[in-house]
């Protein structure tokens, strides 16, 4: 197994800043904005993005965490996981612009599951997807609206986003088994 580093901490930080700017720009400010992070790394990212947005605009948008494991199509593990405990959305999403934040987008299945979950939370005006790394090769007709980095890797490789909060370091790496 080999691991190579794609982006180091300062690049990750700049990318998160850019995501924050683009979200504000796409929404035309922070009005009616709600950010939802997909557990677990999306939940760390969403807080950093919210902090950046507060830095830019002076207003911090409401933040929530969603756990899509019960909504995923590969439900093998869902029985073990508590279904609702991990989803915490403190505000109503009705008529809001909801930005779903995750670390990596690949097949689109996680985002599809997130859309299902959000449709059970309420009826947002609009849903945007903000992603730190898009590795392409979608299996579903799902797009990321705001993308930090586009990377091209082989199907056998794995993109890992490591964040200070859970991994002690900000770093984006690629693992391959060759």
């Amino acid at each position: 197994m080999t691991r190579r580093v794609l982006f180091e901490a300062d690049e990750v930080s700049r990318t998160i800043s850019r995501l924050a700017h683009e979200i504000v720009e796409k929404n035309g400010g922070t009005k009616d904005l709600t950010l939802l992070g997909i557990r677990t790394r999306g939940a760390h990212l969403v807080r950093r993005i919210a902090a950046k947005i507060e830095g830019i605009t002076g207003a911090a948008p409401p933040v929530g965490d969603i756990d899509v494991s019960a909504y995923r199509d590969d439900r093998s593990r869902s029985a073990e996981l508590s279904k609702k405990a991990a989803t915490e959305v403190p505000v109503s999403v009705d008529d809001k612009t909801v930005v779903v934040v995750d670390d990596v987008i690949y097949t689109g299945r996680t985002i599809r599951a997130a859309l299902d979950l959000i449709s059970h939370l309420g009826n947002p005006k609009r849903i945007l997807v903000a992603i730190l790394v898009d590795r392409g090769e979608r299996e579903l007709p799902i797009r990321a609206d705001i993308v930090g980095k586009n990377v091209q890797v082989a199907n056998s490789e794995r993109v890992n986003v490591r964040l200070r909060e859970s991994d002690g370091i900000d770093q984006i790496t690629v693992k391959s088994w060759r």
């Binding site: 779903v100 985002i111 859309l115 005006k125 609009r126 849903i127 945007l128 997807v129 007709p141 799902i142 797009r143 990321a144 609206d145």
Partner: peptide, 8 residues
């Protein structure tokens, strides 16, 4: 679009 859906 209001949702992150993209046709192929």
């Amino acid at each position: 679009r209001e949702l992150p859906v993209k046709p192929d």
